[in-house]
Amino acid sequence: MDNIDEILNHAAAAPHPVNPALLDSIARSIGADLRPVRPVPPRWLLTGGLVLVAAAIATAGAAVLGFHGVQNLTAIDRALLFPLLALLLWLAAAACVGEITPGSRRFVSPRFLLVGGILSLLAVFAILFRDYQTINFLPQGIACLTAGLLIAVPTALGVWFVLRRGFAVNPVSAGTVAGTLAGLAGVAMLELHCPNFEVFHVMLWHTGVVLVSAAAGAWLGILRNAALRQ
């Protein structure tokens, strides 16, 4: 190497004393409130819990509204669509758990998860659905978007409940990922329920649930950041 390393190593070896009174003060303030704490559960357990919450809420929503969508899908459609949704839910759940654990390994960035998730859904929808009509495009679309978001809200609350003991070092990023997960639960419910297989309807209004939900999560993260800075 070169002398940059030499300089850095030299600096690293040099002591950097901190005022002992400051360290004493820190130790005293920590000691005043020192009690045993229970570490957060293992990563796999939290991830599994989040997937379970999202799947349960999506299925319950579809049960209330009717399983008209899944009943009209072919076996190949189901085999392509639902494993993809399960994979995306798992990735989003794992990313959520990472976001509330400082210093954890990041497998996928929130932006990549959101963009990649939406693009993969769009690709699968484009492959599966061949009906290019746009009958009642806006009213049916708004109904689906609303229904999807109504599933995303309780899912987000469930996510918060499971991860409530975590510590998000980046609330915006954590909010985006949690919103993505909640939005995916909304899409899962729509795929189980919605019998409208018009390709533009599915691509815009079903996928839009993920986008709106992730944006709402990011916005809540921004609000949380602002509140912390007050």
Binding site: V18, L22, S25, S29, I30, V37, S104, R165, F167
Partner: peptide
């Protein structure tokens, strides 16, 4: 430094045994 230790104290339960310690501290400090 004081603020970091306060935050570390509040979040100490989020450290899992077996995970590397320094990234946990530096993520909070950062």
């Amino acid at each position: 430094l004081q603020e970091t230790w306060l935050r570390i104290h509040q979040a100490r339960h989020t450290y899992r045994a077996g995970e590397p310690v320094l990234p946990w501290f530096y993520a909070i400090a950062r």
